[in-house]
C-alpha cells in the first residue's frame, strides 16, 4: 500500500508576522519558511506506518511556487520515498478547495491506500483541505487524529480523534483521508546522512494542465489588517490588590 502525504510551505511557526502597510497581506520577503508543523506530523505518521510494515511507499506532495521543492526535500530527508511538486506558477494564492481538487487528481493517478494531511495550516488556519479532498473522493475521513492503527488484512484504519468533548474513535475502510492533530506523534529530525540521501531522491514536477484541474477562485481577499491591540495592563504587587482590582475596578468577581 502507498501513502500520500500533503505538505505545505508556510511562514515558520516561531516568526512574528507583520501585516503589510498596504493591507494586501502579510510580509513574506526575507521571512523564514518551514514545513507546516501539522504536515510534519503527517509525514512522521506515514513513515511510522511504513516502518511498521503496513505500507510500502510514502509519497510527499505539495502545491505551490518553485520554493515548495525545499519543503518536499525536507519530507524526503525525513524519509519519504519520492515527491511530487504541483507548480502553481503565477497563480498566487491557491485556495484550499483548489488544493483539494489537485490532491484528488493526484490520488486518482497514484491510487494511495491512505492520504494523510495536517489538520490545518498555521498561516490561513483554514482547517478545510483534508475534509474537502475526502468529500471530493468520496472517501471516509478521520480528522484531528491523535492515534492511528492500521489493520493491513482487513484494510481498515482505526482512528482516535481529538474532539471538543474528549476522544472519539472511528473505524474507516481504506482508502481513507486522515488529518493529524498535535499529539499524534513527535516528528523526527532529518539526520545529516538522510539529508544527503534526500538529494538524490526524485521530485517530479507536475503542471495543472497535466492534471487537468481547472482552478477557479470563489473567494477574494479584500484586505488583511492588524487585530486591535489590547491596552497595556498594570503590574500589581499582591493577591490582596488583585482581588480588590477584580472586585472593584474590573467588577468581574
Amino acid at each position: 500500500m502507498k501513502i500520500m502525504v500533503a505538505v505545505k510551505r508556510v511562514i515558520d511557526y516561531a516568526v512574528k508576522i507583520r501585516v503589510k502597510s498596504d493591507k494586501s497581506g502579510v510580509e513574506m520577503s526575507n521571512v523564514k519558511m518551514s514545513m507546516n508543523p501539522f504536515c510534519e506530523i503527517a509525514v512522521e505518521e506515514a513513515l511510522r506506518i511504513r516502518e511498521a510494515g503496513a505500507a510500502s511507499e510514502v509519497v510527499a506532495v505539495s502545491v505551490g511556487p518553485a520554493q515548495c521543492a525545499d519543503t518536499l526535500r525536507t519530507a524526503l530527508a525525513m524519509g519519504a520515498d519520492r515527491a511530487i511538486h504541483v507548480d502553481s506558477g503565477s497563480l498566487g494564492l491557491v485556495l484550499p478547495l483548489s488544493v483539494a481538487k489537485i490532491l484528488k487528481a493526484l490520488a486518482e493517478i497514484e491510487r494511495p491506500g491512505l492520504m494523510i494531511l495536517g489538520k490545518q495550516a498555521i498561516d490561513d488556519d483554514c482547517n478545510q483541505t483534508g475534509q474537502m479532498v475526502a468529500g471530493l473522493l468520496n472517501w471516509p475521513q478521520g480528522t484531528f487524529a491523535s492515534k492511528v492503527l492500521l489493520d493491513k488484512e482487513k484494510q481498515v484504519a482505526t482512528v482516535e480523534r481529538e474532539v471538543d468533548g474528549g476522544l472519539e474513535t472511528l473505524s474507516l475502510d481504506l482508502p481513507a483521508v486522515i488529518t493529524t492533530d498535535l499529539r499524534l506523534n513527535q516528528p523526527r529530525y532529518a539526520t545529516l546522512p538522510n539529508i544527503m540521501k534526500a538529494k538524490s531522491k526524485v521530485i517530479k514536477k507536475v503542471t495543472l494542465e497535466e492534471l487537468n484541474v481547472e482552478i477557479k477562485s470563489d473567494l477574494e481577499v479584500v484586505q488583511v489588517t492588524e487585530p486591535p491591540k489590547r491596552k497595556a495592563g498594570v503590574i500589581i504587587s499582591s493577591v490582596d490588590e488583585l482581588i480588590d482590582k477584580l472586585k472593584n475596578e474590573a467588577r468581574v468577581l
Binding site: L95, P96, L97, A100, D125, C126, N127, Q128, T129, G130, Q131, M132, V133, A134, G135, L136, Q141, T143, F144, R161, E162, V163, D164, D218, L219
Partner: peptide, 23 residues
Amino acid sequence: SSSFGKKYTSKSCGSFGCSPVTD
C-alpha cells in the same frame, strides 16, 4: 466552528464544489 462543524462543513463543500469560509 466546533470540532463537529469543522469536520463536515468543509466535506460538504468538497461535494458542492464551493469554498467554505471557516472561523
